[in-house]
Design a protein around this nucleic acid. Structure first.
Length: 558
DNA sequence: GCCGTTTTCGGCCCGACTGTTTTCAGTCG
């Protein structure tokens, strides 16, 4: 069992114990163990059993629970407490904005046991009767439930990627057994690298189409049912899959049709006219357009650009020369500064690392006070001597306070090579307040990069609303780069605003916000949405070479 | 349930903010 699963199990246990009003200190220590396990730099399953209770924050009791989980995959104590809790009440713990205390009141005082009932209660204005609840809380809960319902059956790209690739390989083998020369391709949202996937689509082109169709229902990993020439199923997790067998001669036309969104497909086909095509390139060529990459086929402005032969050369992962906005054990990261740097240098062949630990306001994340900023800078100087020509840039993720100011005085801010300014508190502002707040941070002369501009967590939390045009215009005016936070839960700035930012001359930066060495690989997801946004390497800050970015930071500081 | 002793029991406890209160509890990052 992975650390993440163990950590989540412990968190659920602590939340349920809170619902059942058990000893708060006991709850606290289990919740603490959740944080600790989540931040361990090694896998618990590889640790000798007698060493688990030596880990800080994990004593005999928690070690026993962890060992039980590792050996049996289950925890009796958790199973028992789940059995005593209605399923819907457990589900309520996943609603943003309410914690165990409020869930307990909903359950015990209002007698509500399902999320559906809770939603009705909000609509009937019944929540305000409960102690500690008012109109605003009721509205927040209603909105959070609506957001959660809308996320039902939808998945992050990163959540489905592994499954999709495995399924594709298995399906290819299965189909090849019937016909060796068959062709397969991903289509739909997955091929367009959408940040959220509602359904996974695969096209199969084959000559013996009848035999393929006959055999598909027996393809064991799925339980496919045929409806109008398409084979569909929904996995246990609620993920919809569509498989389209088509005549081999029509494969490229069908693949094209099933990839782009409807508007894109209709517009291109209207230009291309009827015909049989031997490649997608041929379709675009007949339409008088340069080839449009799948990620761009959203009917944004890509057809006009293709007509004018002005499509950008989309950035690739290999274009990246460094990684900015990352954390280390100095704040809430898992790996040390040196481990993070060496990983970038040796495993990723990058030229530089920007380290941006949390600033002092983020106490929960061991944010750096002024003295520790100074101490970290000394360590960076030492490492830079050791790792040259690889370079660590002195950065900080400085909190944007409620009034838009950064949380260090100028004397400290000027000691950094660059500053990522991000919001981490007070996320429920309305558009006017949130925009004003960000504008002030952007106008701060020390702000180099605006971090995750809306604070959204895909499928889990809407970001605070902002006036995108005002924010982007201000970034252009103040030479502030906008982050594309590459964490697959964020992907913020949203790709739909990349083009506008690029038109205004704003640079973007694909930042993984890594809290451990593996986190750097999230740049892969950042690149996918950056391509959807139309980003080219020359407009991406961390595709700059070491010399270029050094010059860029120096110029900004001057 | 963990930790660190004043060594086997008592203390443990982010801070800002919000919404609900009329002095504070709950939630968040």
């Amino acid at each position: 069992m992975e650390n993440k699963t163990i950590a989540r199990t412990l968190r659920l246990l602590s939340q349920l114990m809170e619902l059942h009003e058990e000893n708060p200190f006991k709850i606290k220590s289990i919740a603490n163990a959740y944080f600790k396990v989540d931040k361990l730099p090694f896998a618990l399953k590889d640790k000798p059993i007698n060493e688990i209770d030596k880990i800080e924050g994990i004593g005999k009791g928690l070690a026993t629970k962890i060992i039980e989980l590792l050996q049996t995959g289950e925890l009796k104590e958790l199973n028992d407490i789940i059995a005593q809790t209605p399923e819907g009440v457990v589900e309520m713990l996943g609603i943003k904005g309410i914690g165990p205390k409020k869930v307990l009141i909903i359950w015990r005082d209002l007698g509500i046991e399902t999320v559906g009932e809770l939603y009705y209660a909000c609509n009937e204005n019944r929540l305000i009767e409960a102690k500690g609840f008012g109109l605003k809380t009721q509205e927040e809960i209603k909105n959070a439930i609506e957001f959660k319902l809308a996320a039902n059956g939808r998945f992050l790209y990163a959540q489905v990627e592994g499954f999709a690739k495995t399924l594709f390989t298995q399906l290819s083998k299965w189909v090849t057994k019937t016909e060796n020369g068959s062709i397969l391709g991903f289509a739909g949202q997955y091929r367009r690298a959408c940040e959220i996937i509602d359904e996974l689509e695969i096209v199969i082109g084959a000559e013996q189409i009848g035999a393929i169709k006959q055999n598909l229902p027996a393809f064991a990993p799925l339980s496919l049912i045929e409806t109008e020439n398409t084979f569909v199923c929904t996995t246990e997790a609620g993920f919809r899959i569509k498989i389209h067998p088509v005549e081999k001669a029509e494969f490229f036309l069908q693949w094209f049709k099933l990839t782009g969104n409807t508007e894109h497909v209709d517009k291109v086909l209207a230009l291309a006219g009827p015909g049989n095509f031997t490649s997608e390139e041929e379709i675009y060529s007949k339409a008088g357009l340069s080839f449009i990459e799948p990620e761009l086929r959203e009917d944004f402005d890509e057809i006009e650009l293709a007509k004018a032969n002005k499509l950008p050369t989309l950035i690739q992962y290999e274009d990246l020369k460094g990684s900015l906005h990352n954390h280390s054990t100095w704040s809430d990261g898992v790996h040390t500064l040196e481990q993070m740097a060496v990983y970038c240098k040796d495993n990723l062949n990058l030229q530089y690392l920007g380290i941006c630990d949390h600033s002092k306001t983020a106490v929960y994340a061991k944010g750096l006070n002024e003295q520790r900023v100074f101490a970290q800078h000394q360590e960076i100087d030492e490492l830079n001597k050791k790792l040259a020509p690889f370079k660590i840039f002195k950065g900080i993720e400085s909190d944007i306070l409620s009034d838009g100011s950064l949380d260090y005085p100028d004397e400290i801010l000027k000691t950094f090579d660059f500053v990522v300014a991000s919001v981490h508190s007070n996320l429920r502002m309305d558009e006017v307040k949130a925009t004003t707040r960000l504008l002030k941070a952007i106008e701060n002369p020390y702000t180099t990069i605006l971090g995750h501009p809306t604070g959204r967590l895909l499928l889990s939390r809407a970001g605070y609303p902002i006036d995108y045009k005002k924010i982007i215009n201000a970034c252009a005016a103040n030479k502030v780069v906008i982050e594309i936070n590459a964490n697959p839960l964020r992907l913020d700035l949203d790709w739909r605003w990349h083009r506008y930012a690029l038109e205004k001359g704003v640079l973007l930066s694909v930042n993984p916000d890594a809290h451990r060495t593996e986190g750097f690989h999230d740049m892969h997801y950042g690149i996918l949405v950056a391509r959807k946004g139309g980003l080219s390497a020359d407009k991406c800050l961390n595709a700059f070479s070491l010399d270029q970015i050094t010059a860029y930071f120096e110029e900004k500081q001057a």
